[in-house]
Every structure is written in C-alpha cells, then in structure tokens.
Amino acid sequence: MTYTLWILITGCLVGLTCGITGSILVLRKMAMIADAISHTVLLGIVGAFFVTQSLNGLPMLIGAAVVGLLTAFFVETLHRSGVQSDAAIGVVFTSLFALGVVLIAFIGDQVHLDVQHALMGEIAFVPWNTLQIGGESYGPIAVWMLGGVLVLNTLFIAIFYKEIKISTFDPQYAILIGVPVVFIHYLLMAMVSLSTVASFDSVGAILVVAMLIVPGATAYLLTDKFFSVIWMSGAIGILSALIGYGAAVSFNVSIAGSMASATGLLFLLAFLFSPKHGLVFKRQRMTST
C-alpha cells in the first residue's frame, strides 16, 4: 500500500511542480524553451557525474541548473545574432542533448544511468531509493527533491509575483518601470531546469515536457486570470498524474508515457468543452447569434 502511495505522491509532485512552473512559460510564449531545457538537462546530469563520480541529488541539481541556464543563454545569443528563434532553439537543444546521449554511452556501464532510463524514467523504482540518515529511512529521495524544488519554485513565484506578471504581459512597460526583466527570465529558466532534474528520476527527461507545457496550455483554455492559470495548471498536472497512473497499471504500460497521454486527454477535453474558449461552445455561440 505505502509503495503505491509513494508512487502517487511522486507523480502528483511532478505534476504540481512542472504544472505551475510551465504555465508561466506557456503564457510567455516560451513553451519550446521548456522543451529544449528538459532535453539538455541530461547533459547537466552527465556532467555532474563526471565531476563527482556519483549520481547524488545536489550535484545533479546544480549541473542541471547550469546547463539549463546555458541553454537559455545560447538560444538568446544566437537569436540576437540574427538566427530565427525556432531554429536557434532547435540547433542548441539537439546539439547538447546529442552530446549528453553520447557521453552516457561511454559511462553507461559504470552507473545506473542508461538512455532508456533518462528518457522515460522509472517511477516504479522510486519508493526503494530512500533517504537514509543514521540508519533511519525518511522516504524516497525523489519525493524530497521534488518537494524541495516545489517549495523553492513557489517561493520564487510568491516573491516575484508582480514582476513575473508584468514582464509576461507587457515586457516593454516592465522595462520602463524598472523590472529586472533579464533576471526574471533567467530565474524562470533556472526554475524549469530544477523542476526537470527533480522529475528526471521518475518520469524521464522527455516526458517532463508534457507536464511542463500541456497542463499550462490546458489551463490557458479554461481561464483568463494569471493566478488562476498557475493554480489550475498545477491541479491539472496532479489530475493527469493520477489518471495516467491508473491507466498505466490497468494496461501494464509505461507510467510516464501514460501520464503524458493523460495530459493530452485533458487538453483535448478543454479544447472541445471549455466554457469560454472551447470549440463546441464557440460554435454554438456562433450559430445562436
């Protein structure tokens, strides 16, 4: 019983953490940067392994944050030198991701880290990898990492709420009244990197993308308020994790993939039936007027 419970808690924490962070990126039209960072974080994790020779939580978080920020920086630099932004994102993330995969191929036999694991994660192993202090077990490491990142991200959003909101909706005005726009940008990039690496063990680098982008996009179809988009996105993330887990258990398939499919299902529902922006009601309104 506790085994299932830990998996559910892990899944929900991934959904919540990625959901609230990702929703801001969706509103800032930076969804694909989130996609890029969640690929390149792999390189940060491999890099952290090369430095410390172990797969510990803290160096991994630092390595991921560094590479995540570098990704954002490279994309920004290329874009400013005249490369169109979609191509800049494409070339940066594929290069860094490919480098990460090739490096894994070299160290793969020394550690418990293979490409399969990095891509899809293995949430089923999470409950066994527990935090041990003085012989006492304090629950899975993944839950502690996710919880920590969740607290950190929530704190950042709470402290810089006004700055994030203004720079999202009116960057020009934000610069004018002295909001540190560049700092907010890189702060968000760091938050995405941390969320990604904390989720990495359970759902894998690729499927984090689903949790980052899809709940945010779904919430954006349901509400117009900035704050509502954030909390709804978190809630949709949790809901997707629960639905995904249920489906994965009953069909005996990849839990991470199933959770990603669940985000897609909820998006489709909102896309069709959202009271305000859904396709069905929009059409009804059009025919009734």
Partner: peptide, 14 residues
C-alpha cells in the same frame, strides 16, 4: 507544437 510533441511521443512510449 509543445503539446503535440509531448503527447504524441508520450502515447508512442505507451
């Protein structure tokens, strides 16, 4: 694009 990439790929993994 992000929604479609992640959902299609996730479903592929399933």
């Amino acid at each position: 694009i992000g929604v479609i990439i992640s959902v299609f790929f996730g479903f592929g993994i399933v």
